[in-house]
Simulated assay, not measured.
Amino acid sequence: MKKMLTISLIFSLIVITSFIKNSTKKIDEELFSLKENILNLNLELDNVKLEFDYLSSSEKLLSYQNLYFEDKLTLKNINEIEIIDFTKEKILTNDVKIIDSEK
């Protein structure tokens, strides 16, 4: 009887250990996936912060224009701006529609 109890105890420990190992492996895979997603999101956040920092004010844009482009940039009227559509075989241009969001 004592031998049977010892064998059943060892067998149950092996089964429990196997179950715990499989559960831990699944959790580890989920953690790895989440860490990868967080890393990608952090990179995207850094890029957006950088873009915001450098393009957030008109004064900065004007200083960059003077610093890098000198007289290469010209002022355009908003009505002269068009959207170019390359989805079809022909190149189509559409006027930009300005929507006042304050209304």
Rank of each mutant, 00 (worst) to 15 (best):
L50G: 11
S23V: 06
K35W: 02
F19K: 10
K35R: 06
D100G: 00
F32T: 12
T24M: 11
K88W: 06
I83W: 02
F69E: 03
L73Y: 03
L67S: 08
Q65Y: 07
E29K: 15
S33F: 03
K60Q: 13
K97A: 03
N22C: 12
T17A: 15
K103G: 11
T6K: 15
E70F: 13
N22K: 15
S56W: 05
E29A: 11
E51G: 12
E70Y: 11
S57C: 02
N79W: 02
L13T: 11
E102K: 15
F86H: 09
V96F: 01
D85S: 01
Y54T: 09
T93Q: 07
D46S: 11
L13S: 14
I83E: 01
D46H: 07
N47C: 06
E82T: 06
N79F: 02
E29N: 12
F19Y: 11
K21R: 14
E44C: 05
T17P: 03
I14F: 04
K49V: 08
K26H: 15
V96S: 00
N79V: 02
I38C: 06
T6C: 12
I16R: 00
Q65H: 09
S58V: 13
I81Q: 03
L5D: 00
I27W: 11
L41H: 10
E89F: 07
S101I: 13
I38W: 05
I98E: 01
V15W: 01
L13H: 04
I83T: 04
E30W: 05
S57R: 01
L92N: 15
V15I: 00
V96T: 02
K49E: 03
L50A: 12
K2S: 14
I38H: 07
N37P: 04
K97H: 04
I99A: 08
I99L: 11
L73E: 00
K26Y: 15
I83Q: 01
S8W: 06
N66M: 10
T74C: 12
E102H: 12
